[in-house]
C-alpha cells in the first residue's frame, strides 16, 4: 500500500465519520490533497518568519508543527467541518477572535 492509498483511506474514514454523503471522486480527492499540502506548507513557511524573534525557537516550532501536522493528517476535512455554515460555530469563532484580538493588543503592546 503506497502513501497515496493510505491518505485516500484516511480521507474516506474521516468522510464516513462526518457522515458526508458525497461520493469520493477523483476531483474531490485530489483537491482535498492539494488543500492539505497547501495548508501545511504555507503554515510551515509562515512559521519560518519566527526567525526574526528567535532562531532556535523557530526551528523547534517548525519541527513540532511538522510532526503534529503529519500525525494528524488529513487535517482538511476536519477544518472544513469546523468552518461550516452553522450560525453557532460562526458566532463562537467570532467571539473567540474578539477575545484574542483584544488580549493580544493589550498584552502585545505593553510587553514588546
Amino acid at each position: 500500500m503506497n502513501i497515496y492509498d493510505v491518505v485516500l483511506k484516511r480521507i474516506r474514514e474521516i468522510q464516513t465519520k462526518t457522515e458526508e454523503q458525497e461520493p469520493l471522486t477523483n476531483i474531490s480527492a485530489s483537491s482535498t490533497l492539494a488543500a492539505e499540502i497547501t495548508l501545511i506548507s504555507s503554515l510551515l513557511i509562515a512559521l519560518v518568519m519566527l526567525r526574526l524573534v528567535n532562531t532556535v525557537l523557530m526551528i523547534v516550532i517548525v519541527l513540532a508543527v511538522f510532526v503534529v501536522a503529519l500525525t494528524f493528517m488529513p487535517i482538511m476535512p476536519r477544518l472544513k467541518r469546523e468552518q461550516n455554515d452553522s450560525f453557532n460555530s460562526m458566532i463562537f469563532f467570532v467571539i473567540v477572535a474578539l477575545g484574542i484580538i483584544i488580549t493580544l493588543f493589550y498584552w502585545g503592546n505593553l510587553n514588546v
Binding site: S31, T32, A34, A35, T38, L39, S42, L43, A46, M76, L79, K80, Q83, I101, L104, F105, G108, N109, V112
Partner: peptide
C-alpha cells in the same frame, strides 16, 4: 504601534490560507 502591522500581516496570511483551502473543498 508596530504590533498593528504584525496583526495585519498575520490576519492576511490566515485569510489567504483559509480562503484558498476552503475554496478547493
Amino acid at each position: 504601534l508596530p504590533f498593528a502591522q504584525i496583526v495585519i500581516i498575520v490576519i492576511s496570511l490566515l485569510a489567504m490560507i483559509l480562503g484558498i483551502t476552503m475554496a478547493l473543498m
